[in-house]
């Protein structure tokens, strides 16, 4: 039915087609204007700055006046030739993959628990408490982590020692460092990450549950057949968006926790770029690495998005 209409439509001359489209959709195009202006001015206009990756940046000459670098891949080479490179790519991917796959499920399970809890008051209290860590800056989280995990004065090690065990150097050994990073990330984002899922669960048509109850459907099965399909779309969308950030293992987070002792397991691309690029005013290097990350992320997002079509969810 609609195909015949489309066919008829596509036979019309271009001018006529534009006219009809505008006539039909103009209020929506009108709504888009502020958004488009915003993205054009504040996002696209500065993007010309990416050219810095290929320029020998001179502050006084500005971005466009700076000379081209020779060879053009100089900064990319600097990144790949750095001996530090042996670890940082592996660390970055390892930390962010763990964050991605381990990080999403606890929030989801927590959101389900909150929505299923019969005592609304209790659920609300837990929920309110659960997002508190989100507001603490990483510096403070580090302080809290020290209070819990430190060898000398940490609560956890205190308990271990009292039970006759050996203190575990959580914060200052390469074996535990990535675990601590993932754990603290999980802790900080658990409740906050659940908010989106909860909003999606709230949006599910309640009559579906009523019908299911009448049919004698248990609550496990209700979750499986109604809740999870109901939030599948948002879950997949969030997953795709997170894949786009796979090369960001969380600069602010890792930077605060990183010490020389755990550099071989903890240095990530962004912390390296920070000391190499920003610390030495080498914006070209920082831009080049950023550009490389962007290209990779885009590829990953495109791939995941294509895959996700199978679950009928797409970000565009």
């Amino acid at each position: 039915m609609s195909t015949t209409r489309d066919l008829a439509y596509s036979r019309l001359p271009l001018g006529e087609r534009i006219k009809r489209t505008l006539l039909r959709w103009w209020p929506l195009y009108l709504m888009l204007i502020p958004g488009i202006v915003f993205f054009a001015v504040y996002k696209y206009a500065p993007m010309g700055g990416l050219v810095l990756a290929f320029k020998n940046f001179k502050i006084k000459k500005g971005i466009w006046g700076s000379p081209w670098v020779d060879p053009w891949y100089k900064y990319f080479q600097q990144f790949f030739k750095s001996p530090a490179n042996r670890n940082i790519i592996a660390n970055t991917i390892s930390i962010s993959l763990w964050k991605l796959f381990v990080g999403m499920f606890p929030s989801l399970i927590f959101a389900l628990a909150v929505s299923e809890c019969r005592k609304r008051g209790f659920a609300r209290i837990v929920q309110t408490v659960s997002y508190l860590p989100h507001f603490l800056s990483w510096v403070v989280v580090y302080g809290v982590a020290t209070a819990m995990l430190s060898v000398n004065r940490g609560v956890v090690n205190d308990v271990i020692k009292k039970l006759g065990g050996q203190a575990i150097p959580f914060l200052n050994s390469n074996e535990y460092f990535q675990g601590v990073i993932i754990g603290t990330d999980l802790w900080k984002g658990l409740g906050w990450g659940a908010i989106t899922y909860l909003a999606a669960i709230m949006g599910i048509d309640t009559s579906l549950y009523e019908a299911a109850t009448v049919d004698g459907c248990g609550r496990f099965r209700q979750i499986w057949h109604i809740t999870l399909p109901g939030i599948r779309k948002i879950f997949v969308v969030l997953l795709i968006l997170k894949v786009g950030t796979i090369l960001d293992a969380g600069f602010n987070h890792v930077y605060v926790f990183l010490t020389d002792e755990v550099r071989s397991s903890g240095e990530i691309i962004d912390t390296w770029v920070y000391t190499q690029g920003i610390g030495k005013s080498n914006y070209s290097l920082a831009t080049a690495v950023g550009l490389m990350k962007s290209v990779l992320s885009t590829t990953l997002v495109l791939a995941t998005n294509a895959l996700s079509r199978k679950w009928e969810a797409s970000i565009w």
Partner: peptide, 15 residues
Amino acid sequence: VDAEVFTGDSNVKAN
């Protein structure tokens, strides 16, 4: 030696 001598300045200070 303090097992956390490399970890953070505030640790050392607190001890």
